[in-house]
């Protein structure tokens, strides 16, 4: 019996705009195990960031969680708290935010305030959630900054965001996110806006911190390479739906969904002989006018009109599921390439 920390069940988040309703998250379900890393991968606009905000019940109007459950198990044997059912301004939700589930964002530049010192911003949640005195909170902040590998932490506390480099800002955000010992860290594309060297350092840092602090990580990215490095389990999202869920080895070595397969083929690989890199044909459809039936069908090479009308989220094996009506045909096709 796996030790579940967070269980998302059939989550729907809609944005009610004057032009129409956008179903940003459309029936997503997954589980995060205590201390493990779940990778969420998908193209821009597939709803992964909205989902991350939904977990903290932070979706702002015109967006709203329409239905579904977000069950949070603070302790292994404690009854779950359904975050989706709480008022988004309630004290209960605010206690969970940062105290239990912390979040770091894509833009380290703008996710820190331009007009407050690092000290001011770091001490704030520590005092709020840990009830420490100002001096104790400051000492705690210094320890954390040193732990994420930042030199001169005391001096750093007096700095402003524009005085730091991109990598330093993201380290500050990570230190801040860990300040209240969260059980889950949601990382929304934390390495997208930094260069590759810094990206590798940050991933290493996060892995090291996970061993030390024991928190689970929900890592959101569009980069499959990053997923391969850090995730234990993977959710592949497309247009607000999960199209494939499996452990990281299965996703990379035995993907079932045509979309996952196409994503993998479009990664440049140095060991393959030089040829034109494959792309997925077409574009992500307009979110106001989603395709009928299988959402991926306009771009799918295996599409058969009647077969793909209503693809089930099918179990490939016990922990591997894919939303495709033709999983088994495709498997056969791929396994007999010589015929």
């Amino acid at each position: 019996m796996p030790d579940i920390l967070l269980e998302v069940k059939d989550l729907h988040v809609n944005f009610f705009l004057t032009e129409g309703t956008v179903k940003a998250v459309n029936g997503v379900s997954f589980k995060i195990e205590r201390g493990k890393t779940l990778g969420i991968v998908g193209e821009s606009g597939c709803g992964k960031s909205v989902m991350a905000r939904a977990i903290l019940n932070m979706v702002r109007p015109p967006g709203r969680i329409v239905s579904g459950e977000i069950n949070y198990y603070s302790q292994p044997d404690s009854p779950p708290i359904n975050i989706a059912s709480l008022n988004r301004n309630s004290a209960q939700v605010r206690r969970i935010r940062w105290g239990e589930i912390a979040m770091i964002f894509q833009e380290p530049m703008t996710s820190l305030s331009p007009v407050h010192t690092i000290s001011n911003q770091m001490i704030e949640p520590i005092q709020l959630h840990l009830n420490l005195s100002k001096q104790a909170a400051k000492n705690h902040a210094v320890e954390l900054l040193a732990r994420v590998g930042l030199p001169n932490p005391e001096q750093l506390l007096t700095r402003y965001r524009h005085e730091l480099s991109g990598g330093m800002r993201q380290r500050v955000m990570i230190a801040m996110a860990l300040s209240c010992n969260p059980k889950l860290l949601i990382a929304d594309e934390p390495t997208t806006a930094v260069d590759v060297t810094t990206q590798a350092q940050i991933l290493n840092l996060m892995r090291g911190l996970q061993d030390e602090f024991g928190m689970a990580i929900m890592f959101i990215t569009h980069a499959l390479g990053v997923i391969a490095e850090i995730a234990d389990d993977v959710v592949v999202m497309y247009l607000g739906e999960e199209v494939e869920v499996a452990d990281v080895d299965t996703i990379f070595h035995d993907p079932s969904h045509p979309y996952t397969q196409a994503l993998l083929r479009s990664i440049p690989r140095p060991d393959m002989k030089l040829k034109r890199l494959e792309t997925i044909k077409g574009n992500v459809p307009d979110p106001m006018h989603l395709p009928q039936g299988c959402k991926y069908h306009p771009r799918c090479r295996y599409y058969i009109p009647t077969r793909c009308a209503n693809p089930p989220f099918e179990r490939v094996s016990s922990e591997h599921r894919a939303r495709c009506a033709r999983i088994h045909d495709i498997k056969e096709q791929l396994s007999e390439p010589t015929s």
Partner: peptide, 14 residues
């Protein structure tokens, strides 16, 4: 701006 979201994610009152 993302820094507003950070503030919200920290669990501050709106």
């Amino acid at each position: 701006q993302p820094y507003v979201e950070t503030g919200r994610a920290k669990g501050l009152r709106e």
